[in-house]
Amino acid sequence: MSAPGSEAIVSEESGDLALARTGDAQAFANLIQRYEGKIFRLAQHITQNREDAEDVLQETFLKAYTHLDQFQGNSKFYTWIVRIAVNQALMKLRKRKTDRTVSMDEGIDTGEDIVAREIATWDPSPEEQYGREELAEILDSAVQSLAPAYRTVFVLRDIEDLSTEETAAALDLSIPAVKSRLLRARLQLREKLTKFFKHKGDDAFAYM
C-alpha cells in the first residue's frame, strides 16, 4: 500500500484527523472524500446490494464521526473505517433472512477444496474479449458467488489492496486464516473465470 507520494498523503491525512478530532467538519469531510468511493465499493461487494451498500456507507462514516476519539492512531485510519464498514456490511447480511451463509466462519470448506478442476490456458488479454461493462459483470458475479468468508477476504486483499496483516486486523482473523481463505477464494475465482476466459482452441478436442 505504498504508492509514490503516499507519505504526503499520510501527513495530510494526520492533519485532517487531528482537526476532525477537534470537531472540524471540513477536515472530516476531507477524510470522507478520500475514502467514500473505496468504502462504497467494499460495501457493495460484501452486501451485493446497492441500497444496503449506501446504508453501510452512511453508518460507517457516522460511526467513525461519533467515535473518532476512540481511534487510537496505532493503525491507519483507512484500516479502522474498513473494520467498521465490514462489521456493518456483515450485519446487513445477517439481517437478510434468506441468506444463511453470513457468518465469517460459515461456508468454510475443510481443506479438501484446494483443487484445480478447470485446466485451460486463457486468451492473452481477457479484458479485450469482453466490453467494459460485460467484463465488470462477469467479475462481480464471480465474486458474489463466493461464500462471504472468502469473499470478504478477497475483497480486502485483492480489490482494496490491504496487506495480509491489515486484513487480519480488520476481520479479527489470524494471519494463517486470512492466507488460507485468500488461497481458496483465488482458486475458486480462477475456476469460475476460466469458463469465460479460456483460450477457445483448448476446446477443440472436446468435439472429437
Binding site: 490456458t121 481477457p126 467484463l135 465488470a136 485483492d158 480489490i159 483465488r186
Partner: peptide, 19 residues
C-alpha cells in the same frame, strides 16, 4: 496453467480500479 491463470485472475481484478 493454474499458476498463470490464478495470477491473471488477481490482475484482472486489480485492473478494475473504478471506485
Amino acid at each position: 496453467v493454474v499458476c498463470d491463470t490464478t495470477r491473471k485472475t488477481i490482475q484482472v481484478y486489480k485492473g478494475q480500479t473504478e471506485c
